[in-house]
Write a protein that binds this DNA or RNA. Sequence first.
DNA 1: CCTACCGATCGGTAGG
DNA 2: CCTACCGATCGGTAGG
Lengths: 221, 221
Amino acid sequence: MNVRSFCHYEKIMSEANFHRGEHTRTKIIRAAHDLFVKQGYHGTSMRQIASQADIALGGLYNHFEGKEDVFRAVFLEYHPYHEVVPALLAAKGETVEQFVRNGVNRIYEALDDRPDFLNLMFIEIVEFNSVHTNELARELTPVQLKIVERVREINLDKLRPIPPLMLVRTFLGLFFAYKLTEIIFAQPALPEFSENDLDYFINIYLHGILKGNDKLQMDVG
Amino acid sequence: MNVRSFCHYEKIMSEANFHRGEHTRTKIIRAAHDLFVKQGYHGTSMRQIASQADIALGGLYNHFEGKEDVFRAVFLEYHPYHEVVPALLAAKGETVEQFVRNGVNRIYEALDDRPDFLNLMFIEIVEFNSVHTNELARELTPVQLKIVERVREINLDKLRPIPPLMLVRTFLGLFFAYKLTEIIFAQPALPEFSENDLDYFINIYLHGILKGNDKLQMDVG
DNA sequence: CCTACCGATCGGTAGG
DNA sequence: CCTACCGATCGGTAGG
């Protein structure tokens, strides 16, 4: 939880008030998140957020400096890295293939509750020219290093020569490729893509990073 | 050019006026596109669009029913499929690898002038819940079939068993993976990613779809 | 009668 | 944390 530096007028605050304030702030962020991913940034008004969070419009400004500040908090609080980084660090397996499949499963399950996590990133890119994304990238540099270290611990004998960071980047790219092409190709009227579509992406990726003629353990293709 | 069905009241129109009207419509779409990709949908006002197109606000409504109608026209006119589909159909090569590399180059060059083509798709997804994307997907079904036919003409001996449509989908996913992870990982303050980053994605993809132990002709990894 | 626009203004809402 | 407002601007439309 952040320091409540947004409360300029409160010099002294009781424990009870502090927790009440934190709770309100959390309510606002959740309400704002739901509205932003559904309606976009400019499409969502401060009045809607206030109403959804069960406070008056003016009350928002006790917790946030303005609309962009609300979005920034939502973005930092709901960014998928909260799920993705622990999943990457916790992934286990004896071979690279097992590691990748385990990592995919962990991430897939962690993001399953939030099918619209991409919307948050898209809003940030189009409405704020990725300024918060860049801010986050700077802050997460040590985390990147930690992940790279973790990758180096794996037995990479069977891996083609690919820099660890590029390995992580292409791995995450897998999900973007899958999700975005699903949106592009999908036609709600027609029968859905089969459920093992993601498997094609995974297997192509695994064949792509592994050496030569080893057959994958759980190949579907 | 589309039929000007938006002018319900026009029963007869002279050639000169028709072309003047078409030109104005084109100017509006270009102006709106530039503003939308820079500022988002709700972030762009009809007044800004009119101003940028050098006409009065009221004049917009002689060409479009409203703001959403303007965006729809921009989306259909500037969607990357205009560049991507011809590039895919025109790709040449004697091996799958040559085909893929040629296709990548054609698409890369065609989209080079429009680094923000993703923004248009992102706005559509977050602001309109992909309704225009779905509309487009339905209209482009025959085009999909044409591309799949084209893929079948290629010598696919060296290819792992992957359905042609999945081949096309993962191929396009390549660009999304590259572009989006570039945004996520990039830090303007730090030295840029090297210029051959895309090559890693391409080579992983090629290794991923091709059989066994064949060495790629132009491998960098 | 038409097309292509204008200046002015409508009812509501924006962030603060 | 609320009520009561502000300057400005929103998308869209009026008559001419």
